[in-house]
Structure formats: structure tokens, C-alpha cells
Amino acid sequence: MSGQDEGGLPEEFLRYPRRGYGMDHDWYEWSMLHERAPVSWPGGEALALMLVVPLEWFPLDSSNKPFRPPGGMLTPYPDLRHYTSRDYGNRVGVVRLLDLFAELNVRATFAVNAEVARRYPELIDAVRSGRHEICAHGIDMAHLHSGELPIETEREWIGRALDMLREALDSPPRGWLSPGRSESANTLELLAGAGLEYCLDWVNDDMPYPLLGGRLTAMPHSDELSDRQIILDYRHTEESFVEQIGDAARCLAAETGRFGGRILPLSVSPWVSGLPYRIDYLRRALDGVLKAHSVWSAGAGEICRHWCGQSGQGNAS
């Protein structure tokens, strides 16, 4: 037949060293969502609404290596159009989000690049005065954690990001979202070692679960339920965005009778939903969820601690 593959693939290709019960790594245990003990939210609500707002700074001279983070620079240097379009979110779009959250009386988790906190202290003040939760989001969108990053460099980056944020907040952040949600094989261990309680990188569950035997908690943070994913990547309309959030909430709320409280995560970027013609659709999406279901709107760390207390798992208390 084909002569070129007579020798075949290297032998390791037919060896399966991690083929056995559970996962093929040691970060978390295999567990099926529908078999877990139910938890209940503080007021017996069906849904915990976990709004996550990344505040990102994309340096103009980003190399996009080893990968281009979502939202990263696209055209040859100097990519002023994308730099300023993202910065629009931090100046203008975020105010629309903050005003909307205040109007609807919802609490969000702002995942903040340390450089955003250093460069835009007024923005941090505005977020804090809205009583929102703030968690760490790395140094900036050009400091990408990945398998190519030496462990000592990564340890220094995490320490630096937390130090910078601590300075801006007067208190240490409890949670972490990696820029571009990218991790190295060491990231989780380093985050736990730095005293963080929860991580927002993982998209494999609808409920929290313990990482590293409970030294860190994975909070469910769908990458599908996101304005950037639905509107920009899939190019669905704003009407469809509203419909999909409503469908997700209805599905999750319908499961609560049998399975206990559920979490509706929603990730919204100020440079996406904060546009003048989009902000009202975010209002419609949130308003629809709040009117149709009993909802506990809380920060990711609050939900995490409550879940840890209820489930007897995890590190936060």
C-alpha cells in the first residue's frame, strides 16, 4: 500500500501510560455532576448568578506568543485600532456595565489584570464603590502562562500580579483567572501556594469542584456563556445572546429541584457588551433571568465559600 509509513509512528504512539480509572492527570478527581450531593444557596435560591467581568490591558507591543489571546492585537504594529477598541472597554464600556449592575442590584466579579489596577486607579475605585468582588487576572494580556513558561518565571509573575493588585485593593484577592485562561502544568500548584482560594480557568463543570485535593477550588466558568464567544466568535445576534442566556438559566433552574442549587456563570467584557448598541441587550438578558427565577447574585469568592461550607470540600471557609 503506501510505502512511506512502513515503519509507522513512533512506539510511544501506541502506549497509553495514563489509561486507567479517572483522569489522565492528578489535578482533580473524575466526578459526574448529576451524582453529587445537592447544595442550597443562602436564601434557598435556585440559581447563583456568577457574573464575571474581565478588565484587560492588551499592550500595544504584544508578541502574541506562544499564542494570541482572545481579543489580542491582530494587525501589524502599531495596531492602534485593536488597542484602543479594548481600551474603550476600560474607559467607557465598563461604566455602562457598572451602571447597569447598580440598577439591577447585581454583584459581579471583576477579574483585573494587575496592570489595569496600576494604570487606572479610578477604574478600580469605581468597581469597589459598586461593592463588586475583585479577583486577580495575571499581569496583563501579554503575560501568558503556558507550558513554555519556566516555573521560576511563572512564580514571579503570579507573585508580582498579586502584589500589584494587593497594593491597589488594600487586601489580597482570593481568586484567579489566567490571561487567556491558559495555564502551565505548574499554574495550579503555584496559585494554591500563593494562598488563592479559587480559579476561574476551568470550563468542565457547572458546579465548583476541588482542585489539588481541595487546596484550590475550580469555579464553573463556561467559555460558551460569554458575550465574546457568542457575539464575536460565533457572530450570533444580540437577540440570540439574550435567548441563549435565558435558555441556559431555564435549563439550570429546572435541574435545581432534583439536584440542588445551580450556578449560572456569565462572562461579559466591557469592550463587547459595553457598546452603546449592545448594553441594552445585556440588560434584557440579566433582567430576564432575574425576573424568571429566584437568583442569588454574588461574587465568585462568596459562592465558592458557601459551596465549600455546604459540600464539606475545598479550602475556602
Binding site: H25, W30, S31, M32, P66, V203
Partner: peptide, 23 residues
């Protein structure tokens, strides 16, 4: 696509086994 471990697409697929399958 990304350097290993590429956790987002990996976890996305793991979602199917943990949560999506039952639905």
C-alpha cells in the same frame, strides 16, 4: 492549538463526560 497543557479545549471536552452527557 496551544502549548501543552492546553486546558480550555481539554476541559471543554471533559465537560461532556462530567455534565453534558447526562442531559
Amino acid at each position: 492549538p496551544r502549548p501543552l497543557p492546553d486546558i480550555v479545549p481539554y476541559a471543554h471536552r471533559d465537560y461532556g463526560n462530567r455534565a453534558g452527557l447526562w442531559r
